[in-house]
Design a binder for these strands. Sequence first.
RNA 1: GCUCCCGUGGUGUAGUCCGGCCAAUCAUCACGGCCUCUCGAGCCGUAAACUCGGGUUCAAAUCCCGACGGGAGCACCA
Length: 570
Amino acid sequence: MPVENIRKTARKYALQNAIQFNGSANPKAVAGKVIAAFKEENISPNLIYQISGSACLEVNKIPIEQQIAELEKLAPELLKKEKKERDFSLPELPDAEKGKVITRFPPEPNGYLHIGHAKAAIVDYEYAQMYNGKFILRFDDTNPENAQLEFYEAQKEDLQWLGIEWDEEYNTSDNLGKHYSLAQQLIEQGDAYVCYCPSDAIKEGRFHGKECKCRSRSPVEHVDSWKEMLSSSVDGVLRLKGDMACANTAMRDPTLFRIIEKPHPLHRDKYRVWPTYDFAGAVEDSLSGVTHPFRTKEYELRDECYFKLLELLKLRKPHLMEFSRLSIEGMPVSKRKIKPLIDQGLVSGYDDIRLPTLRGLKKRGILPEAIKQFVFSQGISKAESNVTFSLLEADNRKILDPIAKRFFFVEKPIKLVVENASTLEKSIRLHPTDEKLGSRTIKTGDTFFVPRIDMEKINVGDIFRLKDLYNVKVREKNNVVFAEYAGKELITGSAKIQWTTDNFIKMNVFVPGLLYQKGKYNSNSLEKVKGFAEEAVSRLKTGEIVQFERFGFVRIEKQNKTITGFFAHK
RNA sequence: GCUCCCGUGGUGUAGUCCGGCCAAUCAUCACGGCCUCUCGAGCCGUAAACUCGGGUUCAAAUCCCGACGGGAGCACCA
């Protein structure tokens, strides 16, 4: 009785479609659903089109109320268009088995971590978690010119702050011995050679696809040259014997090892021959058991080299994957762009709150959990994008709002004298909905301070409310505003303005803006807002993130007696 | 220039592998309303997208070809 079944199904979907679209069903859309429903049974689409078509015709004749009533009986589940929950978890990994996935995060210890690193680290770490696997932290410190001792620790601190824990940690530089022997193996196989050409000539040869004379010497000679390279001061580089005519320029005999005389932060002058990223990256991923290494898209052309090397060395090939780099509008998300800003003094340092470094983000009150959610929402696509920072702010705000204590901060204050004000001790809650966060008590007299900007909008005769206190009516506006008490009952619609008494503390809040606007450095990107905060703020501790009402979320920092705020976002 | 990757609302993203349940997800932004002793949060609503052109198919965001646009690489940096 399949035809009867099809009819019923068509009727159902026609009703649903009609209800969704003003009582008129679209046969094409309905047929699609019906076909999908009978996919297994190999029914001719033509038949379904016919049936769906007539179903729609019939359904469209009846009024929408009846349509609803009928669908209610037939298939009530189709009636409610349920809101689909977006699943923000990472997509499944190919060839992944629970307990057997190994990932790695391989930073070069050459600077503090930024949000781009965080994306990689979070993805690596989360995948290991997802599959109950292992996560390795590996310092790719194979260039003594870049690696600096302080950053091994600093980067670990940054990761810990993010909430990332690693199962294993090691330095690539500790494996140089192994690298050397693999190199020798390649040379002996005739797959790598020592090249004495100057770097310009190598570049030139690569550009034109021309092999150089070093390439044609015998493996035995190259083994000798290699040993000389390692032991004496003979110059040269070790290159892969790839294909100098390959369309992929990464395959035109890439350099595998080169000489760097500068002492290494860990190994001093023990080594002078160092592997390049192409070699070290591939070899380390394979040897350390990594199953799913990730890297950013700009390495894509080097995949071929990665696999070729492993093949020649007869090493296991991991499942290498790429995703796009994170870029944020108006923010420099790379060491290359951040460093010059610091060197030129355009920002205060690696923890400048305008920077997307983890230290900068931390300082302005961005929480690790927000960064995590932000990274998940971005996913691991290969499409380039230019994200707005406000996306991260939104994630952060959602976390902060229910837990941040509220205080009054008066930006650019102006004095307000309330005549006939009585002396009060007022207890005001620290959070509008969560009573557990407690309250503070403020003693008020006749002197207040309120934001100048609010007073500019208010005229003599207007009534406004000192928030959580009482109403006042403005009598005179000069350098000081004079007002009179105007009742404590809330007047709906009246402005509610934050205030301090004369028992205030002076504080500055630094408000970050975009470092770049239309691609140009913005010299006004950091604003210092001067103001008065209520006295209770002086008892906050460094690192607390609070909301200054009608101003924004601010992270507090205390040095000696001075309190400074760093603005996170509204 | 050559090679590779990518192209879904203003922004970001799901869906693309395996064509139909997609007249397309979720978020952000914008706008409106409700609520609130914050310009915050919450709630409700509105607006807004498959780069273009061909092809295959009963059926294309999804497959194929081409164009266009964007990005990356062409280091003895990672």
